[in-house]
Design a protein around this nucleic acid. Sequence first.
DNA 1: TGGAAAACATGACGATCGGCATGTAAGTTC
DNA 2: GAACTTACATGCCGATCGTCATGTTTTCCA
Lengths: 205, 205
Amino acid sequence: MTEAAHRTQAQRREQTRTALLDATIDCLVDVGYARTSVQEICARARVSKGAVQHHFTAKAELMAAAVEHLTTKLRHQLAASLDELPSGGTGVAAAIDLLWTGYSGTLSTAVTELWVAARTDPELRAAIRPVDRALGRATLEHVTQVAGDLPPERAEMLFWLTVNLTRGLALDAELGGDPHRRRQLLEEWKRIAVLLYQDAATGPS
Amino acid sequence: MTEAAHRTQAQRREQTRTALLDATIDCLVDVGYARTSVQEICARARVSKGAVQHHFTAKAELMAAAVEHLTTKLRHQLAASLDELPSGGTGVAAAIDLLWTGYSGTLSTAVTELWVAARTDPELRAAIRPVDRALGRATLEHVTQVAGDLPPERAEMLFWLTVNLTRGLALDAELGGDPHRRRQLLEEWKRIAVLLYQDAATGPS
DNA sequence: TGGAAAACATGACGATCGGCATGTAAGTTC
DNA sequence: GAACTTACATGCCGATCGTCATGTTTTCCA
């Protein structure tokens, strides 16, 4: 083994920190929030319990940091998805597909775990809410770029409808619902959205 | 205190059993799945840990029974909501309101807790899936009664879209999203659904 | 009415939880 | 290169988890 060990303190710190946060996300995805223990996390991160103690005063703080870590990862994933799209107003359908892929991945699975847990955990809830709202606004902004020249009010309505529908579908997917039906529903929703887009162009209600 | 104690064995059995299951649901709603312990449950049910041991061999079996208990309660609630509606084809909007009230109540909150937990718990998952599918079909049947004379294929599509949208909205409500916006989204969706209903009447795409 | 059986209570067990105290290795500073 | 700070490891604590063994009460049946 060659001596590859010459990390500065800041490097060491951030490496084990991100290792812990990534391990936390993995843990949430694999075993769920209820069984996500500190021991399990630092076992996956290949560090000891003392490390997590050193970086985070309590488990709640780790979870709060994991929330922020998650949202930044989601933002990056969203940006990557946007880059893959052909630029210019590729339309509403593309935006919906974008949201679906965003909300059906493993990262969003972890978010859902934390979200449901936060309902009965005020501390976690306080950590999640602002970050999630910021992510929502940023996503809305990016999506409207793709969606073309919809009137902003109509676009926002369509966005939130799609987000909530997608979240429901993601929940269905997590429990092993029928993938074929989910795809059908998504296609149908895209048709509806395009139809509404035409309505909005000719004249809103 | 007067002597009101002359319960038959079957009465005793079912009383403490339902007390345990109701306490389990309360526990899921109040403190969430992660903190739903046997001790907490039997504290709320005013029984000892030996009782739950006598009725259910393990905690997992209690949870499985709670799932069934929950769905029967939801079915009753759905039936009650149906009775309150003016019979006859009161239209799509009424059906959507029905689904929303059904999926935004405390019972559905408990279901969501179990649902998310079931993702990483194969045993719980196996208990949930068939019951949930049956409930979905039964709800679909009741809703189509209210929704009037839609073509069945179109009605089923609208139903599942509404269900998934409503589940997403319920998640948003659980975390304290903006109630005003939720109501806006629901009203918008109702308008869309009615519009689609007219399309389906004149001629589907 | 008395014994069998079911329903429920009590207490203890091993395991694991999160958190803390203490020790050791790695990096920084002078 | 020696004092010093930071990063991490080890081990233990009280609390709580789910489960089990054993006692006590209540209903049933002959």
